[in-house]
Lab assay of single mutants.
Amino acid sequence: MTYKLILNGKTLKGETTTEAVDAATAEKIFKQYANDNGVDGEWTYDDATKTFTVTE
């Protein structure tokens, strides 16, 4: 399945997608991606749209 991440960081904003077997796997990938890019904030997930959002 395709999952989407919306980044609302102070210095980085944008979107990315990943292919993952489930939401938990996608979350791990996205949290590593956000960490690698210096984004740390409040996480939400919308199962209907398979979208994670992180807001600093």
Rank of each mutant, 00 (worst) to 15 (best):
M1K: 13
M1Q: 14
M1N: 15
M1A: 13
M1P: 14
M1R: 09
T2W: 12
T2A: 07
T2F: 13
T2D: 07
T2H: 10
T2E: 08
Y3W: 08
Y3E: 01
Y3S: 01
K4T: 14
K4I: 12
K4N: 06
K4Q: 05
L5N: 00
L5I: 04
L5R: 00
L5S: 00
L5M: 05
I6W: 04
I6E: 04
I6A: 04
I6L: 07
I6F: 07
I6G: 02
I6S: 04
L7M: 14
L7V: 14
L7I: 15
L7D: 01
L7N: 02
L7S: 03
N8P: 04
N8Q: 10
N8A: 08
N8G: 04
N8F: 11
N8E: 12
N8V: 13
N8S: 09
N8M: 12
N8R: 11
N8Y: 11
G9E: 03
G9S: 09
G9I: 09
G9V: 12
G9N: 05
G9A: 09
K10N: 13
K10Q: 12
K10G: 11
K10D: 07
K10H: 09
K10P: 10
K10V: 12
K10A: 12
T11P: 04
T11A: 14
T11R: 09
T11K: 12
L12E: 06
L12S: 07
L12A: 08
L12G: 07
K13D: 05
K13Q: 12
K13W: 10
K13P: 05
G14S: 14
G14Q: 14
G14F: 13
G14R: 13
E15Y: 12
E15F: 14
E15N: 07
E15D: 06
E15T: 11
E15S: 06
T16L: 15
T16Y: 14
T16I: 14
T16R: 13
T16W: 15
T16M: 15
T17N: 07
T17V: 10
T17A: 08
T17F: 14
T17G: 04
T17W: 14
T18N: 03
T18A: 11
T18H: 06
T18F: 06
T18L: 09
T18S: 06
E19M: 14
E19H: 14
E19D: 10
E19P: 06
E19Q: 15
E19G: 06
A20W: 02
A20H: 03
A20Q: 05
A20R: 02
V21D: 12
V21R: 08
V21G: 10
V21F: 13
V21A: 14
D22N: 08
D22I: 03
D22F: 04
D22S: 07
A23S: 08
A23Y: 14
A23D: 06
A23R: 15
A23L: 11
A23T: 11
A23K: 15
A24W: 09
A24Q: 12
A24Y: 11
A24K: 13
T25Q: 12
T25H: 13
T25Y: 08
T25V: 09
T25I: 08
T25L: 07
T25P: 02
T25S: 13
A26G: 02
A26L: 00
A26I: 02
A26K: 00
A26Y: 00
A26M: 01
A26Q: 00
A26S: 02
E27W: 11
E27H: 14
E27T: 04
E27P: 00
E27L: 14
E27D: 05
K28I: 10
K28G: 08
K28F: 09
K28H: 10
K28R: 13
K28S: 10
K28P: 03
K28L: 12
I29V: 12
I29M: 07
I29N: 05
I29S: 05
I29K: 07
I29R: 07
I29A: 07
I29Q: 07
F30L: 05
F30V: 02
F30M: 03
F30T: 00
F30I: 01
F30Y: 02
K31E: 04
K31F: 07
K31T: 05
Q32E: 10
Q32H: 08
Q32Y: 06
Q32I: 11
Y33R: 03
Y33I: 09
Y33N: 02
Y33L: 06
Y33D: 01
Y33K: 03
Y33A: 03
A34I: 06
A34H: 01
A34M: 06
A34W: 03
N35I: 14
N35E: 15
N35K: 15
N35F: 15
N35L: 14
N35R: 15
N35Q: 15
N35T: 13
N35D: 11
N35H: 15
D36I: 10
D36H: 08
D36S: 10
D36E: 11
D36W: 07
D36T: 09
D36P: 02
N37S: 08
N37V: 15
N37R: 14
N37A: 14
N37D: 03
N37M: 15
N37Q: 15
G38E: 06
G38F: 07
G38A: 07
G38R: 06
G38S: 08
V39T: 03
V39M: 11
V39E: 03
V39K: 03
V39R: 02
V39Y: 08
V39N: 03
D40V: 14
D40R: 14
D40H: 15
D40Q: 14
G41R: 01
G41N: 02
G41K: 02
G41V: 02
G41M: 03
G41E: 01
G41L: 03
E42L: 12
E42S: 10
E42Q: 10
E42I: 15
E42W: 12
W43L: 03
W43K: 00
W43A: 01
W43V: 02
W43I: 03
W43M: 04
W43T: 01
W43G: 00
W43P: 01
T44V: 11
T44A: 13
T44L: 07
T44I: 09
T44K: 10
T44D: 07
T44N: 08
T44Q: 10
Y45M: 02
Y45T: 01
D46P: 00
D46W: 04
D46F: 04
D46A: 05
D47R: 07
D47W: 08
D47F: 09
D47G: 09
D47P: 15
D47L: 07
A48T: 12
A48F: 12
A48P: 08
A48V: 13
A48M: 13
A48I: 11
A48W: 11
A48R: 07
A48Q: 10
T49V: 06
T49S: 10
T49M: 06
T49R: 07
T49F: 05
T49K: 08
K50D: 03
K50N: 08
K50V: 04
K50G: 06
K50H: 14
K50M: 10
K50S: 06
K50E: 03
K50A: 06
T51Q: 04
T51V: 07
T51W: 02
T51L: 04
T51D: 01
F52R: 00
F52L: 01
F52G: 00
T53G: 03
T53A: 05
T53Y: 13
T53L: 06
T53I: 09
T53S: 07
T53M: 09
V54A: 03
V54H: 01
V54G: 01
V54R: 01
V54L: 09
V54S: 02
T55N: 09
T55Y: 06
T55I: 08
T55W: 09
T55S: 07
T55P: 01
T55Q: 05
T55G: 05
E56D: 12
E56W: 13
E56T: 07
E56A: 08
E56M: 08
E56Q: 10
